[in-house]
Every structure is written in C-alpha cells, then in structure tokens.
Amino acid sequence: MKSWKKALRLLLSIAFWVLVWEAAAFGVGNSLLFPTPRIVLRTLWELMKTPLFWKVTGLSLWNVLSGILWALLIGILLAVLTYRVGLLRDLILPMMTVIKATPVASFIVLLLIWIGSAKVPTIITLLIVLPVIWTNLDEGLRRQNPQLREVAAVYRMPAWRRVRLLTLPSVKPYFVSACRTSLGLAWKAGIAAEIIARPRNSIGTMIGDAKNYLNTEEMFAWTLTVILLSLLFEFGFVAILRRLDRRPAEQEDAPC
C-alpha cells in the first residue's frame, strides 16, 4: 500500500477514536469524571506553557530511558554469557522466571522499603525489560543456523567476521522484537512505579496528585503525554532500524 494511503487510513482511524471519546464524554456529561478531548488538549497546552511540565517530562523520560538502557546492557551481556556457558543459563532461567511472574507492585513496595523512591522507576523499568531482552537474545543466539555455522567453521572465518556476518544478522529479528515489546512495557511499568513511589517531579507523581485533587483533565493530559512519548520512542526506534537496515524488507528472517 502507498505510504500516503497508509497515513490517511491511520489519520482516519485516530479521528474515529477521538470521535468515540468525544461521544462517550458527551454521554457521561460530567467533565470532572470524563473530560472531552478538547478540554484535555487545552489542559495539556496550558501545562506545556509551564517550565515544570518540561522538567517533569524530562525526568520521567530519563527514568524510563535509563531503565531501558541498563536492561539492554545487562540483557546483552547476560545473553552472550548464557550462550557461551550453558550452566549459567540454568542458573539465570529461574531468576528470570521469578522476575517475570512477580507482580510489579510487589517489586515497587520492596524497593521503596530498601532504597527509597528516587530510583524506583528506573529499577522497575529495568526489571520489566530485562527478561524480555534476555529471553529473546538468548533464543536468537541459540537459533543461529547450524549449517551456516559449519560454513563459517570450514572457511575459517575470523571471530569478528562470524559475529558481523552470522551472529548479528541472526539475532537481529529477535532483538527488534524484544525492543518493540519492551518499549511499551517500559513506559507502563515506569509510570506505574512513579505513581506508587512518588519520586519528586515525575509524570507519575503528577498523575497521582491529579487523582488526589480529582483533577481529571490534568490526569488525562499527563496520560496523553505518556502515550505520545511512548509512540515517539517507538517511531524513533523504527526510524533508527530503517537507517541501519539497508537490505530489502523481504530478506528479513522472522523469528521462528
């Protein structure tokens, strides 16, 4: 499908859901409970005029981004290590399973007791993203085509060339899939952690305050900010991948 047609369909789809929102708000008839899109956009516009909005957004962005970056760093290192040492995978697997199964709220409460509120959103983001990154990369590394590995062995490819020509292209679909899943999860978990832990100057704290004062318009406006940031992240990530990947899309090998 042509790109302008795609964009038009996306715009129409967004317009449809905004209309549904408008209709629902009209149906409820109480902006204190369910504000209309216009009220929310106006509130967001007013918030954006204040320096506090940018400070709060910047700090939340940093909380989530640093959590993702730490998760990527640790996840990649762990995946390489567990790929090389099978025993280490057996050791790591139960820990990752426990992290995945533990409710986020339990982690948040425990971290609040142990380290206070400031670093909780970053660590929660890390804990949510890490198992996704590690599991996917570990799978990708283990599913490298054995026949191509034999080719690399017979033709005595140097280690760096094997990594560049075999390992990285094999793992890439798994990495992309992990990152796409993680980006959405990271924002959900990070903001949830901020709402409960209430670190100073964060979007989560602002949402919590808005809830306490029954300021629904502001709550919607901050939530809209998070949605826009999350989308911006995903679009940025896809744009970076497109720049890195010059080969045609049909050459891509999807994870099996």
């Binding site: 080719v151 017979v154 033709y155 490819m157 140097p158 020509l165 050459q251 090998d253």
Partner: peptide, 28 residues
C-alpha cells in the same frame, strides 16, 4: 591447510549478496 567445502545444500548467507557471500570467505 585450507579446505573448501561445497555442501549438498548451497548454504549461502541469505542476508548477504552473492558478492558479499564470496567475500565472506576471503582471507583478511
């Protein structure tokens, strides 16, 4: 010291062009 092997299956790297596939086995 150097053995080349033409396998039953072509075993080409699907993400590399033909030229890159050939270049991949050249010594550095």
């Amino acid at each position: 010291r150097r053995t080349s092997y033409v396998f039953q299956e072509p075993r080409l790297f699907p993400w590399l062009t033909v030229e890159q596939n050939l270049r991949a086995v050249l010594p550095h």
